[in-house]
Write a protein that binds this DNA or RNA. Sequence first.
DNA 1: AATATATTTTAGACTAGTCTAAAAATATAT
DNA 2: ATATATTTTTAGACTAGTCTAAAATATATT
Lengths: 219, 219
Amino acid sequence: MHSFTEENYLKAIYKLIEQEGDVVTTNALAERMSTKAASVTDMLKKLSDKKLINYQKYQGVTLTTKGEKVALNIIRKHRLWEMFLVEKLDFKWDEVHDVAEQLEHINSDKLIEQIDKFLNFPKVDPHGDPIPTANGKLISSKSQVLSKFKKNDVSIMTGVVDHSAAFLQFLDKSGLVLGNEIKIKDIVEFDRSLQIIVNKKDTLFISNDVAKNILVIKK
Amino acid sequence: MHSFTEENYLKAIYKLIEQEGDVVTTNALAERMSTKAASVTDMLKKLSDKKLINYQKYQGVTLTTKGEKVALNIIRKHRLWEMFLVEKLDFKWDEVHDVAEQLEHINSDKLIEQIDKFLNFPKVDPHGDPIPTANGKLISSKSQVLSKFKKNDVSIMTGVVDHSAAFLQFLDKSGLVLGNEIKIKDIVEFDRSLQIIVNKKDTLFISNDVAKNILVIKK
DNA sequence: AATATATTTTAGACTAGTCTAAAAATATAT
DNA sequence: ATATATTTTTAGACTAGTCTAAAATATATT
Ligand SMILES: [Mn+2]
Ligand SMILES: [Mn+2]
Ligand SMILES: [Mn+2]
Ligand SMILES: [Mn+2]
């Protein structure tokens, strides 16, 4: 099929387009893949030959339909494996990423179908990210970052923007986990930091930087 | 750590020594790895440089203590994953090999510990093969091939020699699965084929070739 | 003991993926 | 519009793993 490296490039292109915008630049990809621009150019030629990306020299890249299908399938596998690790093997949400990064490349349709079934067909992964369907559909969530809300707004935490272990551990320690209710008690005008009430009980202060990395849905 | 290829070579060396005898030849390894002798020689140099094997030109190879530890760890992971697939994901014993061949290379101590725990620390895999411990001990079973037994001997099926999907499917169809009791009703002198009674119920005939690939333990 | 055959290693080449350094193209600033 | 800076691509080299063909060594046969 495709090599691990090809799969990782396709996933990176998908995610960069999702976040940043319409086309992905060579440098952005090099940054994300922790490699050099020259190496990226080589890979882009290869992916282009295989009709997985649309690529013209100096013009950046987008995924073809075929390439997007591959990317979404890797993302599906990654998120299902993360869910498996958390739900069945007692991993914490900050421990799953590196292992899922490997497991996502295991090639077996039956395996991933059975994992999906075993988990009772989850819709989102442990970080609140939606799991693409087997035929490559991804329902994008209506969540917004907490920093966009106003005083007295009440919302439910549904995801995170930053997926780093450090941030996830900080959230755990603060009682900010998926499903919790967050009410904005006050917003400090000076630095846009927030005073919030979690689950109608615990009051705490979070910086605007933190609020920008918490996804919620209005109650 | 070590590449997939290195791990597969070490496992192959381990298994060849286990079956065939004291040292492994270049050609035997080439055969097993479905590659050419020249490629094997290249890899042997590399594994020798890494102190994973004892290798002298033209003299065959053995594993060092370090190499054996790596091999046993891969075998442990392979067998635990096979067990997981059968026990938790409804795979049949003839369907697990190729997937386990990939999963055995996933690198995460926590993952394999948790899988072991999740399965309640199994001692053998779905084919009756013993699972090495985390610190590299392997309890070799006292099973023998059915063809060595005599008329009227009663035994319990504990494993298989041939692991091919074809053979395993044949066994399934014949009701010859692990744990079943096998009584030898008669042995045909001419071709050493057997008439056996499975679980005190079903009588069937099997060739000596089949009997040589069924492992049992005397009751 | 000499020769023939089989096994194993070396030599040299190829692909995937990576790198550095230099050249080419594009974007930005005067 | 031209010069400067930035981005991207090319050129050439490196490693891991593989191959074929040829050379070296070991084993078997006479
Ligand atoms: Mn990956
Ligand atoms: Mn995730
Ligand atoms: Mn393998
Ligand atoms: Mn097995």
